[in-house]
Amino acid sequence: MAATNKGKTAKPAKVVAFSVNGKAVELQIGSEPHQVESSHTLAHTLRETLGLVGTKITCDNGACGSCTVLIDGKAILSCMTLTVECQGKSVMTIEGLADPVSGRLDPLQQSFIDHTAFQCGFCTPGMIMSAKALLGENAAPTEDEVKEALSGNFCRCISHYHVVKAVLAAAPGGSE
């Protein structure tokens, strides 16, 4: 692939369209107040443009997992993702877990309540989203697999022990 053929340079996009919690979102790209700037992170767009403030920002630099959301089922950090690069993706946030009609909580959320798997609760949405990604890929994780899946999530209160129990208990294929 030599670089000399067909000399076009890369181009910017004018709109970005993706889904958030099953709903289609289309945003114009630009610097007007109603638009999304190309430098906006997904975390910023979720919180400030779409009003989905359940996604928390702790370090805003890729180190703590608080802003974890799912993109196409994978846990990613929304503070390290450009909104303009989400074209065509399916984004799921903590607000998208409960059943939209009945309001019934996701089994993971219920398990976090039942196990008091939080203290200050600020890191909890990110924890639940990392766990959600894990259970999506592995219905019966071992304790070590739970720890591995959550190893990028910061919690300073040390809710870890309760979280591990909550996730294992919520695993559909788990024995607990």
């Binding site: 692939m1 996009a13 450009l82 303009v84």
Partner: peptide, 17 residues
């Protein structure tokens, strides 16, 4: 982050250009 121009490269050649 400070604004920047964001470009989507379709090919490596485009990116090099």
């Amino acid at each position: 982050m400070k604004p920047f121009l964001h470009l989507n490269a379709q090919t490596v050649a485009q990116a090099v250009k």
